[in-house]
Simulated assay, not measured.
Amino acid sequence: MRIDIEVTMDYQLSGGEAVLLTLEAAQTDEQFIHLSELEIETAVLQRIDGEGMVGQRVWAFVTSERLKLHYRAKVDVTRSTSVLESLPAMPWHSLTSDVLTYLRPSRFCPSDLFTEFVEQQFSHLSGGAKVAAMVDWVATELTYVPGSSNSETTAIDTFATRQGVCRDYAHLVCALARAASIPARYTSVYAAEVSPPDFHAVAQVWLDGAWHLLDATRMSSAAGLVVIGAGRDAGDVAFMETDRRADTIYQSVRVSQE
Protein backbone atom coordinates (compact mmCIF):
# COMPACT_ATOMS: atom_id res chain seq x y z
CA MET A 1 0.00 0.00 0.00
CA ARG A 2 1.38 3.42 -0.92
CA ILE A 3 0.56 6.24 1.47
CA ASP A 4 0.92 9.95 0.63
CA ILE A 5 1.76 12.36 3.43
CA GLU A 6 1.75 16.16 3.39
CA VAL A 7 2.39 18.34 6.45
CA THR A 8 2.32 22.14 6.56
CA MET A 9 3.25 23.99 9.74
CA ASP A 10 3.51 27.70 10.52
CA TYR A 11 4.51 28.64 14.08
CA GLN A 12 5.36 31.94 15.72
CA LEU A 13 8.55 31.60 17.76
CA SER A 14 9.85 33.88 20.48
CA GLY A 15 13.05 34.36 18.52
CA GLY A 16 15.61 32.52 16.43
CA GLU A 17 16.11 29.19 18.13
CA ALA A 18 16.71 25.47 17.73
CA VAL A 19 13.57 23.38 17.19
CA LEU A 20 13.60 19.58 17.44
CA LEU A 21 11.24 17.84 15.02
CA THR A 22 10.08 14.22 14.87
CA LEU A 23 7.82 14.08 11.83
CA GLU A 24 9.66 12.32 9.00
CA ALA A 25 8.54 8.77 8.14
CA ALA A 26 11.02 6.16 9.38
CA GLN A 27 12.75 3.70 7.08
CA THR A 28 11.99 0.21 8.42
CA ASP A 29 11.71 -3.37 7.15
CA GLU A 30 7.96 -2.88 6.73
CA GLN A 31 7.88 0.53 5.09
CA PHE A 32 9.96 1.88 2.22
CA ILE A 33 10.40 5.63 1.78
CA HIS A 34 9.76 6.26 -1.91
CA LEU A 35 9.91 10.05 -1.51
CA SER A 36 10.73 12.33 1.45
CA GLU A 37 11.13 16.08 1.22
CA LEU A 38 11.38 18.46 4.19
CA GLU A 39 11.60 22.19 3.53
CA ILE A 40 11.90 24.79 6.30
CA GLU A 41 12.33 28.46 5.49
CA THR A 42 15.31 30.28 7.02
CA ALA A 43 16.61 27.20 8.82
CA VAL A 44 19.69 25.01 8.83
CA LEU A 45 18.86 21.33 9.36
CA GLN A 46 20.79 18.65 11.22
CA ARG A 47 19.55 15.05 11.54
CA ILE A 48 20.16 12.75 14.48
CA ASP A 49 19.03 9.22 15.29
CA GLY A 50 15.53 8.79 16.67
CA GLU A 51 14.74 7.41 20.11
CA GLY A 52 15.58 3.71 20.23
CA MET A 53 17.12 4.03 16.75
CA VAL A 54 13.66 4.26 15.16
CA GLY A 55 13.71 6.86 12.39
CA GLN A 56 15.43 10.22 12.69
CA ARG A 57 14.88 13.52 14.41
CA VAL A 58 15.71 16.87 12.85
CA TRP A 59 17.25 19.89 14.53
CA ALA A 60 16.02 23.01 12.73
CA PHE A 61 18.18 26.02 13.58
CA VAL A 62 15.73 28.78 12.71
CA THR A 63 17.10 32.26 12.06
CA SER A 64 13.77 34.13 12.12
CA GLU A 65 10.76 34.32 14.42
CA ARG A 66 8.63 32.07 12.20
CA LEU A 67 8.89 28.33 11.65
CA LYS A 68 7.43 27.69 8.19
CA LEU A 69 7.63 24.03 7.28
CA HIS A 70 6.46 21.78 4.47
CA TYR A 71 6.97 18.01 4.48
CA ARG A 72 5.81 15.55 1.86
CA ALA A 73 6.43 11.84 1.53
CA LYS A 74 5.34 8.76 -0.34
CA VAL A 75 5.72 5.56 1.65
CA ASP A 76 5.15 1.96 0.54
CA VAL A 77 3.85 -0.07 3.50
CA THR A 78 4.19 -3.86 3.32
CA ARG A 79 3.12 -4.57 6.90
CA SER A 80 0.34 -7.07 7.50
CA THR A 81 -2.01 -7.17 10.48
CA SER A 82 -0.87 -9.68 13.11
CA VAL A 83 -3.16 -12.25 14.70
CA LEU A 84 -2.19 -11.43 18.28
CA GLU A 85 -3.84 -14.42 19.93
CA SER A 86 -1.37 -16.78 18.23
CA LEU A 87 1.77 -14.94 19.37
CA PRO A 88 3.70 -15.95 22.49
CA ALA A 89 5.23 -13.54 24.99
CA MET A 90 9.01 -13.71 25.29
CA PRO A 91 10.78 -14.58 28.58
CA TRP A 92 12.74 -11.77 30.20
CA HIS A 93 16.09 -13.50 29.77
CA SER A 94 15.63 -13.54 25.97
CA LEU A 95 15.12 -9.77 25.67
CA THR A 96 17.87 -7.50 24.41
CA SER A 97 18.71 -4.34 26.33
CA ASP A 98 16.84 -2.08 23.90
CA VAL A 99 13.65 -4.11 24.37
CA LEU A 100 14.03 -4.42 28.15
CA THR A 101 13.73 -0.63 28.39
CA TYR A 102 10.07 -0.91 27.43
CA LEU A 103 9.22 -3.07 30.44
CA ARG A 104 9.88 -0.21 32.84
CA PRO A 105 7.49 2.47 34.09
CA SER A 106 7.80 5.93 32.56
CA ARG A 107 6.38 9.35 33.33
CA PHE A 108 3.15 8.94 31.34
CA CYS A 109 2.97 5.15 31.63
CA PRO A 110 3.36 4.34 35.37
CA SER A 111 2.91 0.62 34.77
CA ASP A 112 3.90 -0.31 38.33
CA LEU A 113 0.57 1.18 39.48
CA PHE A 114 -1.42 -1.21 37.27
CA THR A 115 0.07 -4.53 38.42
CA GLU A 116 -2.79 -5.49 40.72
CA PHE A 117 -5.48 -4.51 38.22
CA VAL A 118 -3.81 -6.49 35.42
CA GLU A 119 -3.50 -9.54 37.67
CA GLN A 120 -7.18 -9.39 38.60
CA GLN A 121 -8.47 -8.67 35.10
CA PHE A 122 -6.21 -10.62 32.75
CA SER A 123 -4.34 -13.32 34.75
CA HIS A 124 -6.27 -16.12 32.99
CA LEU A 125 -4.66 -15.19 29.66
CA SER A 126 -1.10 -15.13 28.33
CA GLY A 127 0.96 -13.70 25.47
CA GLY A 128 -0.86 -12.19 22.54
CA ALA A 129 -4.25 -13.27 23.85
CA LYS A 130 -3.64 -11.19 26.99
CA VAL A 131 -2.58 -8.17 24.93
CA ALA A 132 -5.63 -8.50 22.66
CA ALA A 133 -7.88 -8.57 25.74
CA MET A 134 -6.18 -5.44 27.10
CA VAL A 135 -6.67 -3.58 23.83
CA ASP A 136 -10.32 -4.64 23.73
CA TRP A 137 -10.77 -3.45 27.32
CA VAL A 138 -9.26 -0.03 26.56
CA ALA A 139 -11.31 0.31 23.38
CA THR A 140 -14.52 -0.56 25.24
CA GLU A 141 -13.97 1.31 28.50
CA LEU A 142 -12.62 4.59 27.09
CA THR A 143 -14.54 7.25 25.20
CA TYR A 144 -12.69 9.30 22.59
CA VAL A 145 -13.20 12.93 23.62
CA PRO A 146 -11.11 15.64 21.91
CA GLY A 147 -9.83 18.17 24.44
CA SER A 148 -10.38 15.87 27.42
CA SER A 149 -6.66 15.59 28.20
CA ASN A 150 -3.51 17.68 27.97
CA SER A 151 0.26 17.30 27.80
CA GLU A 152 0.40 16.36 31.50
CA THR A 153 -2.22 13.58 31.41
CA THR A 154 -0.89 10.16 32.46
CA ALA A 155 -2.27 6.65 31.99
CA ILE A 156 -3.52 6.75 35.58
CA ASP A 157 -5.51 9.92 34.83
CA THR A 158 -6.99 8.27 31.73
CA PHE A 159 -7.83 5.12 33.69
CA ALA A 160 -9.73 7.27 36.22
CA THR A 161 -11.63 9.50 33.78
CA ARG A 162 -12.23 6.80 31.14
CA GLN A 163 -11.78 9.29 28.30
CA GLY A 164 -9.03 10.72 26.16
CA VAL A 165 -7.52 10.95 22.68
CA CYS A 166 -5.13 8.69 20.76
CA ARG A 167 -2.18 9.69 22.98
CA ASP A 168 -4.08 8.55 26.08
CA TYR A 169 -5.27 5.28 24.54
CA ALA A 170 -1.68 4.42 23.57
CA HIS A 171 -0.33 5.33 27.02
CA LEU A 172 -2.88 3.13 28.76
CA VAL A 173 -2.22 0.13 26.51
CA CYS A 174 1.53 0.51 27.12
CA ALA A 175 1.04 0.73 30.88
CA LEU A 176 -1.18 -2.37 31.01
CA ALA A 177 1.15 -4.44 28.83
CA ARG A 178 4.24 -3.50 30.85
CA ALA A 179 2.37 -4.35 34.06
CA ALA A 180 1.93 -7.83 32.55
CA SER A 181 5.70 -8.07 31.81
CA ILE A 182 5.19 -7.57 28.08
CA PRO A 183 7.41 -4.84 26.53
CA ALA A 184 5.38 -2.00 25.03
CA ARG A 185 6.33 1.30 23.46
CA TYR A 186 4.48 4.45 22.42
CA THR A 187 4.63 5.01 18.67
CA SER A 188 3.93 8.15 16.66
CA VAL A 189 2.49 7.47 13.22
CA TYR A 190 0.70 8.79 10.18
CA ALA A 191 -2.58 6.93 9.69
CA ALA A 192 -4.38 6.86 6.36
CA GLU A 193 -7.68 5.89 7.98
CA VAL A 194 -7.87 8.61 10.65
CA SER A 195 -10.39 11.36 9.93
CA PRO A 196 -9.76 14.22 10.21
CA PRO A 197 -6.07 13.53 9.46
CA ASP A 198 -3.58 14.49 12.14
CA PHE A 199 -0.48 13.19 13.90
CA HIS A 200 -1.61 9.90 15.43
CA ALA A 201 -0.37 7.66 18.27
CA VAL A 202 -0.60 3.91 18.79
CA ALA A 203 1.13 1.27 20.90
CA GLN A 204 3.59 -1.44 19.92
CA VAL A 205 4.11 -4.66 21.88
CA TRP A 206 6.98 -7.14 21.70
CA LEU A 207 5.63 -10.62 21.00
CA ASP A 208 7.29 -13.62 19.32
CA GLY A 209 10.51 -11.66 18.76
CA ALA A 210 9.01 -8.67 16.91
CA TRP A 211 7.13 -5.40 17.46
CA HIS A 212 3.41 -5.35 16.62
CA LEU A 213 1.33 -2.19 16.15
CA LEU A 214 -1.97 -1.79 18.02
CA ASP A 215 -4.53 1.01 17.82
CA ALA A 216 -7.00 0.84 20.69
CA THR A 217 -8.96 3.79 19.26
CA ARG A 218 -9.98 1.43 16.41
CA MET A 219 -9.38 4.30 13.97
CA SER A 220 -6.64 2.54 12.01
CA SER A 221 -5.13 -0.82 11.14
CA ALA A 222 -1.45 -1.80 11.14
CA ALA A 223 -1.40 -2.05 7.34
CA GLY A 224 -2.37 1.62 7.00
CA LEU A 225 0.16 3.09 9.43
CA VAL A 226 3.43 4.86 8.69
CA VAL A 227 5.75 4.84 11.71
CA ILE A 228 7.53 8.09 12.55
CA GLY A 229 9.20 7.26 15.87
CA ALA A 230 8.84 5.24 19.07
CA GLY A 231 9.71 5.70 22.73
CA ARG A 232 8.69 5.06 26.31
CA ASP A 233 5.82 7.55 26.05
CA ALA A 234 4.80 10.76 24.28
CA GLY A 235 7.66 12.66 25.88
CA ASP A 236 10.15 10.76 23.71
CA VAL A 237 8.52 11.40 20.33
CA ALA A 238 6.82 14.80 20.39
CA PHE A 239 6.48 16.05 16.79
CA MET A 240 7.98 19.41 17.82
CA GLU A 241 10.03 20.48 20.83
CA THR A 242 11.46 23.87 21.75
CA ASP A 243 12.68 25.38 24.99
CA ARG A 244 10.81 28.63 24.29
CA ARG A 245 7.23 29.57 23.54
CA ALA A 246 5.85 28.55 20.15
CA ASP A 247 2.34 29.56 19.00
CA THR A 248 0.43 27.83 16.23
CA ILE A 249 -0.52 30.02 13.28
CA TYR A 250 -1.46 27.19 10.94
CA GLN A 251 -1.04 23.42 10.85
CA SER A 252 -2.29 20.84 8.39
CA VAL A 253 -1.66 17.08 8.17
CA ARG A 254 -2.94 15.18 5.14
CA VAL A 255 -2.61 11.41 4.81
CA SER A 256 -4.15 9.37 2.00
CA GLN A 257 -3.85 6.04 0.21
CA GLU A 258 -2.95 5.97 -3.46
Score class of each variant (00 low, 15 high):
235 G>E: 07
196 P>A: 05
54 V>Q: 07
229 G>D: 10
193 E>Y: 06
219 M>V: 05
187 T>L: 03
116 E>F: 12
254 R>W: 12
159 F>D: 00
97 S>Y: 08
150 N>D: 15
187 T>C: 15
5 I>N: 02
44 V>M: 14
33 I>Y: 02
87 L>T: 13
168 D>K: 03
107 R>E: 09
62 V>L: 10
88 P>W: 12
246 A>C: 14
184 A>L: 04
163 Q>T: 07
68 K>G: 02
43 A>E: 06
130 K>H: 08
9 M>I: 10
137 W>A: 13
152 E>P: 02
114 F>I: 06
245 R>L: 09
65 E>V: 03
181 S>Y: 05
87 L>V: 07
197 P>W: 01
147 G>M: 13
154 T>G: 03
251 Q>A: 10
33 I>C: 12
77 V>M: 10
188 S>P: 10
235 G>D: 06
178 R>H: 08
17 E>S: 14
245 R>H: 08
47 R>P: 10
60 A>N: 13
74 K>R: 10
82 S>L: 06
223 A>M: 13
15 G>E: 15
151 S>A: 13
93 H>L: 06
133 A>Q: 04
24 E>M: 12
41 E>R: 15
222 A>T: 15
122 F>M: 13
181 S>M: 05
216 A>W: 01
64 S>W: 04
255 V>W: 00
196 P>F: 06
80 S>W: 11
212 H>T: 11
53 M>E: 15
143 T>K: 12
114 F>Q: 02
195 S>V: 14
35 L>D: 14
38 L>M: 11
154 T>H: 00
216 A>E: 02
147 G>F: 15
238 A>T: 08
19 V>W: 02
189 V>Y: 00
150 N>F: 11
175 A>V: 04
52 G>N: 14
187 T>Q: 08
188 S>H: 06
147 G>S: 13
78 T>D: 09
110 P>L: 05
177 A>R: 01
53 M>D: 14
67 L>H: 07
118 V>R: 02
19 V>S: 06
53 M>N: 15
72 R>S: 13
45 L>G: 12
54 V>C: 14
49 D>H: 08
189 V>L: 09
136 D>H: 11
230 A>P: 04
143 T>F: 03
65 E>R: 04
233 D>C: 00
127 G>D: 07
54 V>G: 08
15 G>Y: 11
136 D>N: 12
12 Q>W: 09
177 A>K: 00
44 V>T: 15
155 A>C: 14
13 L>W: 04
